[in-house]
Simulated assay, not measured.
Amino acid sequence: MSTDFQQARIALGARLRELRTEAGLTVRGLAAECGWAPSKISKLENGKQTATPADVEAWAAGVGRPESAAELKGRLAGLESTYRSWRRQLAGGHRGVQDALGAQHERTRVFRGFTASVVPGVFQTPEYARSVLSRYAELHGAARDVEAGVTSRLRRQEGLYVHGKKYRVLMGESALHARICSSSVLADQLDRLMSVNGLSTVELGIIPLSADVRIAAGDDFWIHDDRLVIAESWHAEMWLDSPEDVALYSKVWAALDAGAVRCRTAHQVIARARAALIRS
């Protein structure tokens, strides 16, 4: 969880506490009004739990200030603009998530990305993308509109053929072997990866399993120009735009980049993974 997000959650909690105390309610008193356990009130006020829109509506009604719900929802929306829960995002379907990323791709000229164990979406075949999105939808219990998500994801690949854009992408070698799809789909995906490696807009680096690395691989992330970082974890996506965060991720990318191989050597690493599929 990002420091910025946690600070915003604590600030929201302080405002919730202020509304409760102004109403002359105890923790137990407000819990009774809302039909919650007192522990939920404490967690929300102390920034230990993220409120939902329904939570802040109930809070506003419980303290006798229903008009404050709009303010609280605004604060919550600002918080979620940094820290975006996959569960909440996918509740509205895959297309919205992919379209939001697509809007950022249209704005960006230079991408610096890292993926540890999956081929990046901008290089994915339709079948590989379908498999990836389906697996994550299953994880989060949100199987709606996978096909619409695939279509939106593939639309971003148009940027690969736009003059002036640059995709500087790092991948862990394990991504070439991960069976998140069938072996035939993975084979086609590796063929696709070898073909995009020759594009003038693409600078692909593979970090071999045997590489000496300056830093251990962590979560996947993308740096959009020098203005925005979109980082992924199992439970959320973080959109970070502070200069400090962008500088940190740029430093991480550079450290990972030091262990990567490129051009013909990268092609050979991909080809070996492709040959291993045939033997298996």
Rank of each mutant, 00 (worst) to 15 (best):
S184M: 05
A91T: 10
L139V: 15
T115A: 11
G164M: 04
K166Y: 00
A103K: 15
L204D: 05
S210D: 12
S174Y: 02
L199G: 10
R84S: 15
G198N: 07
L133G: 04
H140S: 09
E173L: 06
E158S: 14
T115V: 01
I206C: 06
Q89L: 14
S210R: 12
T108E: 06
E106P: 00
R112F: 05
F114L: 11
L90Q: 09
I207G: 07
T151P: 00
Y136A: 08
G93D: 05
E138L: 13
L160H: 06
D145F: 05
L209Q: 06
T201Y: 07
Y128V: 09
R179W: 04
V118N: 11
A137N: 06
T82F: 01
R156H: 04
K166V: 02
E127T: 03
A103D: 15
V185I: 15
E80H: 13
S210K: 06
V202H: 05
L139N: 02
L186E: 08
P126D: 09
V122I: 15
G96D: 09
K165L: 09
V162T: 13
R153Y: 02
R107K: 15
R135T: 14
V110R: 12
R192Q: 11
D145N: 10
A142K: 10
R95P: 01
L90I: 08
Q124D: 04
E203S: 12
T115L: 03
V169T: 11
L101T: 05
R87E: 11
G159S: 06
L186N: 08
S85G: 10
V162W: 01
C181D: 08
T125F: 04
S85C: 07
V132F: 12
E203Y: 00
G172A: 04
E138W: 02
R144C: 03
V132K: 04
Q124T: 03
H177Q: 13
S134P: 02
V196K: 00
Q104I: 10
G96V: 08
Y128I: 07
Q157S: 10
K165T: 15
R144W: 04
E203D: 11
S210I: 08
V196E: 03
E80V: 09
L133C: 05
I206S: 03
T151F: 02
L101P: 00
G113H: 05
S195C: 01
R192P: 00
C181N: 07
E173W: 07
Q104M: 12
S117V: 12
V185E: 09
R112L: 01
I206N: 01
Q124K: 02
R144N: 13
R168P: 00
A148I: 04
A143H: 11
V132C: 11
E106Q: 13
A137S: 14
A142L: 03
H94G: 01
T115N: 14
D212V: 10
L170K: 08
R155A: 15
L154R: 06
F123R: 02
Y167S: 03
S85I: 02
